[in-house]
Computed example of a mutant assay.
Amino acid sequence: MRRRQQSTSLTDRQWGMPTALGSRIPLASLIQTLAVAEYLNFRHPANALGVAQSSVSARVKALEDDLGILLFERHARGVRLTEAGRHFVERIAAGIDQLDHAVKTAGMAAAGESGRLRIGIHALIPHSFLANLIGQYREDHPGVEVDMTEATAREAVMQLRADRLDVVFVAGKPELPDCHSRRIWTEPLLAVIPERHPLAERSAITWADLEGETFLVRHGGTGPQVHSHIVLRHAGHWPALSILRFDVGRGALLSMVGQGFGITIVGAATSLLPTSGIVFLPFADEPEPVAFSAVWSPSNRSAALKNLLTLASHMVRIARTD
């Protein structure tokens, strides 16, 4: 019967199952034992840990009694590890390092300094507000892995609701009952026309100037919102509106404008792209600039997301004072 019980205990240890002994050993006893193994006496560990020398000696002795193993051989000048003590200390040191790493990792995640942040974007134009925001965030929080997905506003919000994204940046000020949203930045709306267009020499234009023009919009990115805005501005006007939609990228659409396929409208950040054959003109009759908002789930408690939104607000405040 005794052999059977001993065999079960050995099996439990082999598979990493907690034993009654392991569960009642105080962490302080293990830490003080490691300190004694490092200094090979009781006085220096006690000073380093800020406890009484007698307390360290008593804890180590109690641990040896619980284990039934002599970890240290005592002598006049201090102690030295036994062979069993050396094996014990090596494994305990590895376990303490793993525990320390786990605590630090959990702390970093709780502070938003590690982990992953999944962002849905409509575009990432160099030197735009969004590009600067993400670039500054990555510089401030290098331990956070940033994943980005480009999609239309509708697609991005669907991914957000499916918990495949943490935050999405969209044009407009969406009112979604199941999501939080916040306006982050704005951009003036610009018309994009060929440089040889009769209106190209103007300093600004109106929507009435564009009646009869063929508008080009994209299927992806902010294309659906651009389409809706053009339709809204031409409601009730004649002649009938002509809008052509293409499954192309932003750069290709601008190139098509330059080649005379038609015209389009964009946020001011697009004018930061290197282009040729086109001009960007502001609207004199747009009531307000285009708003861009962050949208996220109310159930998302990510500290990394909170840090991003805080940084965005800070950057907007700085931009307003410049």
Rank of each mutant, 00 (worst) to 15 (best):
E187D: 12
E187V: 05
E187S: 06
E187W: 05
E187T: 04
P188T: 10
P188I: 12
P188K: 15
P188D: 15
L189H: 02
L189R: 15
L189F: 04
L189K: 01
L189Y: 05
L189Q: 10
L190M: 14
L190A: 05
L190N: 02
L190I: 07
L190E: 01
A191F: 03
A191S: 15
A191W: 12
A191D: 03
A191Q: 04
V192R: 02
V192D: 10
V192I: 13
V192H: 00
V192G: 04
V192M: 04
I193K: 05
I193S: 07
I193N: 05
I193W: 09
P194C: 11
P194K: 13
P194G: 12
E195N: 13
E195M: 09
E195H: 12
E195W: 03
R196D: 13
R196F: 07
H197Y: 13
H197S: 09
H197L: 07
P198S: 07
P198R: 04
P198E: 08
L199R: 15
L199A: 11
L199C: 12
L199S: 04
A200I: 08
A200W: 13
A200H: 13
A200F: 11
E201W: 07
E201Q: 15
E201C: 10
R202V: 02
R202A: 15
R202Y: 02
S203R: 15
S203A: 13
S203Y: 08
S203P: 02
S203Q: 12
A204G: 03
I205Y: 13
I205N: 08
T206K: 12
T206Q: 13
T206L: 09
W207A: 09
W207V: 06
W207D: 10
W207E: 09
W207M: 14
W207R: 14
A208P: 03
A208F: 03
A208E: 13
A208S: 15
D209K: 11
D209A: 14
D209F: 03
D209G: 11
D209R: 03
D209W: 09
D209C: 08
D209N: 14
D209T: 07
L210A: 01
L210M: 06
L210K: 01
L210Q: 09
L210P: 11
L210E: 04
L210N: 04
E211A: 11
E211H: 08
G212Q: 10
G212D: 14
G212E: 11
G212H: 09
E213C: 09
E213R: 01
E213L: 05
E213K: 12
E213T: 09
T214I: 08
T214C: 10
F215R: 10
F215M: 03
F215K: 04
F215W: 14
L216D: 02
L216T: 07
L216I: 06
L216M: 01
V217A: 10
V217T: 15
V217N: 08
V217C: 07
R218D: 02
R218N: 02
H219V: 06
H219N: 14
H219W: 10
H219Q: 11
H219K: 15
G220V: 02
G220K: 04
G220N: 09
G220Y: 01
G220Q: 06
G221I: 00
G221S: 00
G221K: 00
G221N: 00
T222R: 03
T222M: 04
G223T: 03
G223D: 03
G223A: 01
P224R: 11
P224A: 09
P224M: 12
Q225G: 11
Q225D: 08
Q225F: 02
Q225M: 12
Q225V: 06
Q225I: 02
